[in-house]
């Protein structure tokens, strides 16, 4: 794969293929495309669209201690936002939970972007041969194929009270008693999230970088730009789509996360997902559904804002 040459060619191909589309359809029956798309459409209808509709409908239902009943009440939403207006400028439970989540989103986004960009930059511009690039890229992706839970619990022997980090710090004499904030804390949650999701930044940014025509960078150098100027004026603008795709992934994953925050926070830190899960466990489906709809709205608004900046389909 000759990346630079390919980038140049692919745009031309796209133009050409658009022109030939009409001819092509003439030798394929019109219904073939529908038949081919149908299985996927059906799966998404049954296991994504209808479930979301069901959630929306149930969020207006009534519930008692024993049962849930069809109705049209807004009490669930009132419960979700209970005290949110009255208690201003203080924070109600829901706002406080979202604020706590927002804090993790900001930290994790900044950290994964900084690390992900650096790693992708190294792979794309400093590793010279394609086989080496692929090999090092694989090294980064392999942990992604293992269970998230395992990658979370693997921090326990390192960060625990008697863990490796504390043992080392104690033996060196830097601290006199074990640090308590290493595990089951905000720190542990942020660390685990960065550990789990940096790859989601590396992949799209690396993809964007590999599509940059190398002659643009040569031209920048020939024009007298320093390495830093090339980075900020040529490379960063060109990989913006990759950065945005990675950001969308990381931001939405962290917003909806409940497992990492649960396990790494020692079940002590609030998150929207955890609230929903607790309500499901108590069979309070309608209020869980209302919370889910609010969470969905927050996530969709965030993505909508980010998507206005990039057209994902052109970037693949």
């Amino acid at each position: 794969m000759d990346a630079p040459a390919r980038t140049g060619a692919s745009n031309a191909e796209k133009g050409a293929s658009r022109a030939t589309d009409k001819q092509r359809t003439s030798w394929t029956a019109w219904w073939v495309a529908y038949a081919q798309a149908a299985p996927m459409a059906l799966v998404f209808l049954l296991f994504f669209i209808l479930p979301l509709l069901a959630t929306f409908v149930v969020s207006f239902w009534n519930y008692t201690e024993y049962s849930i009943e069809p109705a049209f009440v807004t009490t669930n939403y009132q419960d979700v936002f209970y005290g949110c207006v009255a208690r201003l400028p203080g924070l109600c439970t829901t706002f406080a939970t979202y604020l706590s989540t927002l804090k993790f989103v900001a930290i994790v986004w900044a950290a994964t972007l900084a690390i992900g960009f650096t790693i992708a930059y190294f792979l794309a511009f400093h590793v010279r041969t394609l086989p080496m690039q692929i090999a090092l890229f694989m090294v980064c992706t392999i942990p992604f194929w293992t269970s998230n839970v395992i990658r979370m619990i693997s921090w326990i022997p390192l960060l625990g009270r008697n863990g490796l980090v504390n043992e080392i710090l104690l033996s060196v004499g830097l601290i006199s008693s074990p640090l308590e904030w290493l595990l089951y804390s905000d720190f542990a949650v942020a660390l685990a999230l960065v550990h789990l999701y940096t790859l989601f930044m590396v992949v799209p940014i690396f993809n964007s970088m590999m599509r940059i025509d190398r002659s643009l960078i040569e031209a920048a150098y020939d024009g007298g730009a320093s390495g830093w100027q090339t980075l900020t004026n040529v490379i960063i603008p060109l990989v913006k789509p990759g950065i945005l795709i990675g950001s969308i992934f990381v931001v939405t994953i962290v917003t909806g996360d409940y497992l990492t925050i649960g396990i790494m926070g020692g079940q002590q830190i609030a998150s929207v997902g955890k609230v929903i899960q607790t309500q499901i466990n108590f069979l309070q489906f309608p209020i869980a559904a209302a919370n889910a709809i609010v969470l969905l709205a927050v996530v969709l608004l965030t993505i909508w804002g980010m998507l206005r900046l990039v057209d994902i389909r052109k970037e693949l």
Partner: peptide, 27 residues
């Protein structure tokens, strides 16, 4: 090929990737 609803199907697929899993699971 070109088919009616291809854009919608594409965005649904992306949405299914991005909507928090706990919401899909509950749904």
């Amino acid at each position: 090929k070109k088919f009616f609803g291809s854009t919608a199907l594409f965005y649904v697929a992306i949405a299914s990737l991005i909507v928090p899993s706990i919401v899909v699971s509950l749904g």
